[in-house]
Design a protein around this nucleic acid. Structure first.
Length: 561
RNA sequence: UGACCCAUGGUGUAAUUGGCAACACAGCUGGUUUUGGUCCAGUCGUUCUAGGUUCGAGUCCUAGUGGGUCAACCA
């Protein structure tokens, strides 16, 4: 296996250094730790690719761990959706873990901390506790309950566990340092009382451990060597290490937390709250709307796992703020789809063409190559007849030499068919062109080998035979937001930047080979873009999504005018 | 008025750890092409500022500037 000499990212440098300082390859273990309280999005995809990529690179196991310590927000439905998304991206986890599996161990450790005088039950309200926290520039005050006896703490904590108290009546706090410059070290809450059924432990527990108390200990239990998270957890690291100090034994591996900057994609938002607003306000049709940055949305839109993984690989990982342009994601889908998507023809904005010198009832089935990038893809037949549709944009009465398409008196090749010449056109009362009359050169048939068939004409158009065409609903998507960073404006709400034209539905006239398309099929409508069959599609009513347009230098030229 | 993190082309990421600043995307020019696609060739453009250490600094040190994070019984 000739691996490309790819440079290492800073996380890999850390791993490499650890490998030279006592870690063995066997010590390496990673994890992807989502909270099952929503759908995964493109940002999670980066983290998944990072962690599982490390696993692949070092032949190390990667756990899928559900950080399920808050029953108020978490549901089994999300667990299933997350597993589906990770699998779809093409990764296999070693163990499927749940923080809730460690509730008993966490509780036992908490008892130990109490016995050592390192944790205490606080009986104040959350407001009181918050008011004593101090500010980043002023130290906090100690709780009046901070010096309760070990016996009393033990008794109260057991009472909390046994359901003797109401929600919020007591919490267990670590006794650290109320004057620390790190707010998180000011006696953080370890446990709270919450009488709420959990999706896995049901009502077994009515106290739940907080994130900080849970995460590092879970890493330790699973013997995760490198616990990677986003930069916002950097201040948590001190606490992560403090909690670990309380339980690690020297014969076991001690996990280390390291932080990387989350990837931001231009023209999108990923915060759960904001995505929920899009769903609830009906701006999109659901979490898997093809315009959503969720993995399920990207999947439905037609993005491939390969394209997302390649995207994640090329944007890499670092510690600085960033906004990656969505066009890079577009590039990667195109790159992949170009290799695998069969070429077909469909017309989305039809203009009728009549070939006046073609016999009225004649039809021909022409050879069409399925994919010029892949010879093994073979070919198919497409029907040709006297009456065709071409795109409205492909005809102009008059145009300059830069316009390679059809114009009066000009010639153009119909892809896989004949060279035609526009002779005249008819218009409606408003001056719109309704039909173009053309003549064709019978000897110019594609692939026939005649001198005429080899003639070069500047333009080649896609087309479809009207009597043979099938129709389909075609959904054309544009970016959801008109602004590159819709949620970065202090004065304006991100919803102010919603693109009103992010979805356009049109009727497409397609070559008949598409009749038996199945949900998920991916094709290239030549000259238009890559499309897939949406899950709303039925054999009677086909529905296509445009995944992405082709690169379009003509459109760019036009725009410059 | 604190602590911590970060700063490399338009964007993202590298730089054999102190030794010729590179890769991808985007842009531009040309070629090929029965997709204005693909492909090929070329081109554009970069180390936040000021000092210092050094034969040599994107990399180390100091100061500054700019951006970010931190006060949920969320994760």
């Amino acid at each position: 296996m000739a691996e490309e000499a790819r440079s290492l990212n800073f996380i890999e440098h850390i791993v490499e250094e650890d490998l030279t300082k006592g870690y063995t390859q066997n010590d390496l273990r990673f994890r992807f730790p989502p909270e099952p309280n929503g759908y995964l999005h493109i940002g999670h995809a980066s983290s998944i690719c990072l962690n599982f990529g490390l696993g692949l690179r070092y032949n190390a196991p990667v756990n899928l761990r559900f950080d399920d310590t808050n029953p108020a927000k978490e549901e089994k439905e999300y667990v299933e959706a997350i597993k589906k998304d990770v699998t779809w991206l093409g990764f296999e986890w070693d163990k499927e873990c749940y923080a809730s599996d460690y509730f008993q161990q966490l509780y036992d450790w908490a008892i130990e901390l109490i016995k050592q005088g390192k944790a205490y039950v606080d009986s104040q309200t959350s407001e009181e506790i918050a008011s004593q926290k101090g500010t980043p520039t002023e130290p906090g005050k100690e709780s009046p309950y901070r010096n309760r006896s070990v016996e009393e703490n033990l008794k109260l904590f057991k009472g909390m566990k046994d359901g003797e108290f109401k929600d919020g009546q007591h919490v267990l706090r670590a006794k650290i340092d109320m004057a620390s410059s790190n707010m998180l070290m000011r006696d953080p809450v370890m446990y709270r009382v919450l009488h709420k059924a959990h999706h896995r432990t049901n009502t077994d527990w009515c106290i739940y451990p907080m994130y900080d108390w849970t995460h590092g200990e879970s890493d330790y239990i699973e013997q995760v060597s490198h616990s990677l998270c986003t930069l916002e957890f950097l201040p948590h690291r001190e606490l992560y290490d403090w909690f670990l100090d309380q339980v690690v034994s020297s014969d076991k591996l001690r996990p280390k937390q390291r932080e990387f900057a989350r990837r931001n994609l231009s023209h999108t938002v990923v915060s759960k709250r904001k995505l929920l607003q899009l769903v609830e306000k009906g701006i999109v049709t659901g979490w898997d709307d093809p315009r959503m940055p969720t993995i399920s949305g990207l999947r439905r839109r037609g993005f491939t796992p390969e394209s997302i993984r390649n995207f994640a690989d090329t944007i890499g990982i670092a510690k600085r703020e960033n906004v990656v342009d969505v066009s890079l994601l577009d590039f990667h889908v195109r790159e992949h789809l170009n290799k695998i998507a069969p070429r077909v023809m469909g017309v989305l904005n039809p203009l009728k063409v009549v070939i006046t010198n073609y016999e009225e009832d004649k039809e021909e089935w022409l050879d069409a190559e399925n994919n010029p990038e892949d010879e093994s893809a073979g070919s198919r037949k497409v029907p040709f007849s006297r009456e065709l549709y071409i795109e409205t944009e492909d005809f102009r009465e008059e145009a300059n030499r830069k316009f390679f398409r059809l114009k009066l008196g000009g010639e153009v090749r119909l892809k896989n068919g004949y060279i035609i010449k526009a002779e005249s056109c008819t218009k409606d009362s408003e001056g719109n062109i309704t039909e173009v009359q053309c003549t064709y050169d019978p000897k110019s048939k594609s692939g026939s080998g005649t001198e005429e068939s080899l003639r070069k004409v500047k333009g080649t158009l896609h087309w479809v035979s009207i009597p043979h065409a099938i129709t389909a609903e075609v959904r054309l998507y544009d970016r959801l937001f008109t602004d590159a960073t819709p949620d970065s404006h202090k004065e304006k709400d991100f919803l102010d930047f919603v693109n009103p034209d992010s979805l356009q539905k049109v009727t497409g006239y397609l070559e008949p080979s598409l009749k038996n398309s199945r949900v998920g099929d991916q094709v290239q409508f030549q000259r238009l873009g890559y499309f897939n069959v949406d899950k709303d599609s039925t054999p009677e009513n086909l529905v296509f999504n445009r995944t992405v347009t082709l690169r379009d230098t003509w459109a760019k030229l036009e725009q410059k005018k």
